[in-house]
C-alpha cells in the first residue's frame, strides 16, 4: 500500500493556542483560542468549528465569540459524564494547543437581520452559540431595531456568562429578561420556564426576527409562543444541535431527513424545517 500526502484534505487542522480560560460553572469552561501564524478564524455568528485533541478525537463546538473580535475566538465546553473529549478539553490550560477545522455551516444571517427588531431566546447552553450573535449585534447596534434578549437556565448556579449578563442587563439598548426553572434563596429574578418571558415582550411581529437556541426539548414550546405573537415562520431562526462528526456533509451523523445539519445548518429558518419530523 502506497501512502500519498495530500495538501487539500478536508481533515487538515490548523493548530490554535489556548490564550486564556475561564471556568464558568462546575461543568462549563470557556477557552480563548488563537490560531497560529496570526490567522483569523473569520467566522459568521452561529458557525461551529471541529476542535481536535490529537489522540482523543474531534468534537463540533460552536464559536461563542463575535467575529467582530478578530484576533482570537472563544469556545464554551461543557464537560459531560463519560465525555472523553470534553473532559480532556477541560484538562487543558493556557499555552496548550488544540487543532481547528472550520468554521463550518450556515450561521445567523446577521446582515439580513439589519433593520429588523430582534428577539433572541436562549436556553441552557444555547447561550453559547447565541452569544456570538448577541455581541455581534451589540458591536453593530446601530443597524438593528429594538433588541430583546430572553435567557433561561435550570438554576442560578448554572447561569453562563454571568458577568456579561450583568452588563447586558444594564444596557439601555437591550430589553433583557431572564428566568430560572428552579430558584435559590438569594435569587431575586423570575422563576419559571423560558416561554413565560415571551408574552411580556412588546413586538411588531412583521418587522421582528426571532432567534432561538436551546436544548432540543425547548424549541417546540418557544416557537409556539413566537408564532402566537404573530411572527412569520420564515422570521423565526433556530440553531439545531446534532453530532456533526465530519463537518463536511458526508459522515451522516447529523443528517435530518435530506439535510446535513453541518453544511445546510446549524441555523435554519423555521419554515424550512417545520415539515421535517424529528427536526425539532
Amino acid at each position: 500500500m502506497e501512502k500519498i500526502h495530500i495538501n487539500n484534505s478536508g481533515y487538515e487542522i490548523v493548530p490554535a493556542k489556548i490564550v486564556s480560560t475561564r471556568k464558568m460553572t462546575e461543568q462549563e469552561k470557556i477557552f480563548e483560542l488563537k490560531l497560529v501564524h496570526g490567522l483569523s478564524l473569520d467566522h459568521e455568528p452561529g458557525q461551529f468549528v471541529e476542535v481536535s485533541i490529537l489522540g482523543v478525537g474531534e468534537a463540533p463546538i460552536s464559536v461563542c465569540s463575535s467575529p467582530t473580535k478578530r484576533d482570537s475566538f472563544e469556545i464554551c465546553v461543557r464537560a459531560v459524564k463519560d465525555g472523553r473529549f470534553s473532559n480532556a478539553m477541560h484538562n487543558l490550560d493556557i499555552g496548550d494547543e488544540v487543532g481547528i477545522r472550520g468554521p463550518f455551516g450556515v450561521g445567523f444571517p446577521a446582515a439580513k437581520l439589519e433593520g429588523y427588531d430582534i428577539i433572541m431566546v436562549a436556553g441552557g447552553l444555547g447561550i453559547a452559540p447565541l452569544r456570538s450573535l448577541i455581541n455581534y449585534i451589540i458591536d453593530n447596534r446601530r443597524e438593528y431595531g429594538k433588541v430583546s434578549l430572553l435567557l433561561g437556565c435550570k438554576d442560578p448556579q448554572s447561569m453562563l456568562f454571568a458577568d456579561e449578563i450583568d452588563l447586558w442587563q444594564k444596557r439601555v439598548d437591550i430589553n433583557f429578561s431572564c428566568t430560572v426553572d428552579r430558584g435559590a434563596p438569594d435569587w431575586k429574578g423570575n422563576v419559571g420556564l423560558i416561554t413565560s418571558l415571551i408574552p411580556n415582550v412588546n413586538i411588531d411581529p412583521e418587522r421582528t426576527y426571532a432567534v432561538v437556541v436551546g436544548p432540543p426539548v425547548m424549541y417546540k414550546f418557544v416557537i409556539k409562543e413566537l408564532l402566537s405573537k404573530g411572527i412569520p415562520e420564515h422570521q423565526i431562526l433556530v440553531s439545531l444541535e446534532r453530532h456533526m462528526k465530519c463537518g463536511l456533509g458526508k459522515c451522516g451523523h447529523c443528517q435530518i431527513h435530506n439535510i446535513y445539519c453541518c453544511q445546510d445548518g446549524p441555523v435554519f429558518s423555521y419554515n424550512n424545517i417545520k415539515e421535517l419530523k424529528g427536526a425539532i
Binding site: 500500500m1 494547543e97 488544540v98
Partner: peptide, 21 residues
C-alpha cells in the same frame, strides 16, 4: 483508512494522507 498521521511531541503536527494501491 488513515486520514491523518499526527505527532504531538512538538505542537499539533499532522500529515493528511491517503493510502492507495
Amino acid at each position: 483508512e488513515t486520514l491523518i498521521e499526527y505527532d504531538k511531541r512538538n505542537g499539533q503536527k499532522v500529515h493528511c494522507v491517503v493510502e492507495v494501491e
